Amino acid sequence: MIKEFKEFILRGNVVDLAVGVIIGSAFTAIVKSLTDNLISPMLGIFLGKIDFSQVVFSVAGAEFKVGLFINAIINFLIIAFVIFIMVKIINKFLRTEKEEEPTTPSNEELYLKEIRDLLSEQQIQSDKNETNL
């Protein structure tokens, strides 16, 4: 059982996932800081202070902090947009135009093409015979 666990942990995709989670959490902290310290204040200049945290309604003594939820949605949308822009920029830099080398068809592909051509010829001849009748 320990051997199987060791194989599972050392498998490439588990290690890759762990690295992805660690980098993702660090990246989230960076983007949250960008949102909180740069983007939100900039939006505050143009739209006024965006803070719904005081919006609360009560029902039977229970407080529903709708404003905090709205703030979380706004932060999520800003973070998602920033990540979207960053991914587009990264993809633009990583994109390399690869020229596809013409590959020679395998024997299997050649046979299949011949069969296709023969079937096409048979269909054409069949259609001609039907029109002559």
Rank of each mutant, 00 (worst) to 15 (best):
T104S: 15
Q122W: 10
N129P: 01
P41G: 00
F8S: 11
L34V: 13
L77R: 03
F57R: 02
V82G: 00
I23G: 01
G44Q: 09
K6S: 10
V21M: 04
I39K: 04
G20W: 14
I90S: 13
K49I: 11
R116S: 12
I85F: 08
I70M: 03
F64L: 02
L119Y: 11
E109N: 00
D117H: 10
T28A: 08
V15Y: 07
S106Y: 04
I90D: 06
I85N: 02
F76H: 06
I115W: 11
N13T: 12
I9G: 01
D51K: 02
V87E: 13
I78C: 03
F76P: 00
G12L: 06
F64G: 01
N71T: 05
T96K: 13
T96G: 11
F64T: 03
E108D: 12
V31I: 13
E121Q: 14
D117G: 02
V59L: 15
K92V: 06
G12Y: 12
V31W: 02
G48F: 07
I22H: 02
I9K: 08
F52Y: 10
I73P: 00
K3L: 13
F46W: 05
D127P: 01
N107I: 08
S40V: 14
E121F: 15
F64V: 07
A26V: 12
N71M: 11
F57I: 11
L119I: 10
A60H: 07
V66Y: 07
G44E: 13
F81K: 01
T96Q: 15
P102T: 07
G61Y: 01
L34T: 10
I39E: 01
E121R: 09
I73D: 00
Q123F: 03
A18V: 06
E99F: 14
D117Q: 09
V14P: 04
A29E: 07
S33W: 15
T35E: 04
M42S: 13
E101I: 15
G61I: 07
D117Y: 13
S58W: 02
G44P: 04
A26H: 04
L68E: 08
L133N: 14
I30Y: 09
N71P: 06
L47W: 06
D16H: 05
I89Y: 13
I70N: 02
P105L: 10
A18P: 02
G44C: 09
L94I: 11
Q125E: 11
K88Y: 08
V15R: 14
F81A: 05
A62S: 13
I74F: 14
L34I: 15
T131E: 15
V55T: 03
T96N: 14
I22G: 00
G61S: 03
L118H: 12
E121K: 12
L38C: 09
T103K: 15
V55C: 01
I115E: 08
L77K: 05
F8R: 05
F64K: 01
S126R: 06
G24R: 06
E114S: 05
K128R: 12
F84S: 10
M86A: 15
I83N: 06
F93I: 14
